[in-house]
């Protein structure tokens, strides 16, 4: 491997990392509440609401993210209404906004399925007990249903977060220069295919490992503290106990 090339590539790819993380952060911060809303709609007794949520989840999980990005970036530009509204047109004419929007809507669909599983996994007794204590629906949701469902759904949601980081690479197809986009540009300048893409892959690997480590060894034990009699002080000890 060429040392000069690596010296040139690393700062460039790290610059792309900030864009990747920005897309991921928006997708998580906006996509999570949106997914929660769709999960609750799916479970509500209102047939129309549940049907809409089911359709949303089926459409966004049944089509590739690439098509969703293309529809929003290329397709919506054809809608005259959007072109007339200055603010909307400003938003939709930028690749970063469009890709982030598509990834957010996409992850909301997957998140809704994950959270629905969590909400359905709560035992009926817990909710009955909350009702018996005279909790209102909102209080029951805030104190009982959501915390329990979130804890149940956390391992799957941790996976979804790494999926978001990976999917953000598709933003490079609509001119966004995040890790993959910059890697491809660098590749076409230097022709060092294997080196550049390996470095980029390594960067994704490190980010995803760090995210999983935080979720598994910090957040998960913290949320189920009552289950661990002795608190694990390190990731390794936690793993050994599980195995």
């Amino acid at each position: 491997m060429d040392l000069d090339l690596i010296q040139q590539a690393i700062p460039l790819l790290l610059k792309g990392l900030t864009t990747t993380l920005a897309i991921g952060l928006v997708a998580i911060v906006v996509g999570f509440p949106l997914g929660l809303g769709f999960a609750l709609a799916r479970l509500s007794s209102n047939r129309t609401l549940a049907g809409i949520a089911l359709l949303y989840s089926m459409v966004f999980r049944g089509t590739p993210l690439l098509v969703q990005i293309f529809i929003i970036y290329f397709g919506l530009g054809q809608v005259q209404f959007l072109r007339d509204q200055t603010a909307l047109w400003w938003f939709f004419s930028d690749g970063f906004n469009c890709a982030t929007l598509a990834i957010t809507l996409n992850t909301a669909a997957y998140t809704s399925e994950i959270l629905r599983g969590g909400l359905m996994g709560i035992s009926a007794g817990e909710i009955e007990a909350a009702r018996a204590c005279g909790m209102s629906d909102w209080l029951c949701f805030r104190r009982i249903r959501f915390p329990l469902a979130f804890r149940l759904a956390l391992p799957a949601y941790a996976n979804e977060i790494t999926v978001i980081v990976k999917e953000s690479s598709l933003a490079s197809t609509v001119t966004v220069l995040e890790i993959t986009g910059l890697a491809k540009r660098l590749m076409s300048e230097t022709f060092a295919v294997v080196e550049v893409f390996t470095l980029a892959g390594l960067l994704y690997l490190i980010v995803n490992f760090a995210l999983l480590l935080v979720m598994r060894s910090w957040l998960e034990p913290r949320l189920s503290m009552h289950r661990n009699v002795a608190r694990p002080s390190s990731w390794l000890r936690l793993r050994r106990r599980r195995a």
């Binding site: 990976k166 690479s169 993959t180 491809k184 893409f197 390996t198 892959g201 994704y204 690997l205």
Partner: peptide, 18 residues
């Protein structure tokens, strides 16, 4: 582990351009 934590697009690029 590597293939599952690296974006699919990167895998395609690596195999194709490589």
């Amino acid at each position: 582990v590597i293939v599952r934590s690296v974006p699919g697009l990167l895998v395609v690029y690596l195999i194709f351009f490589g």
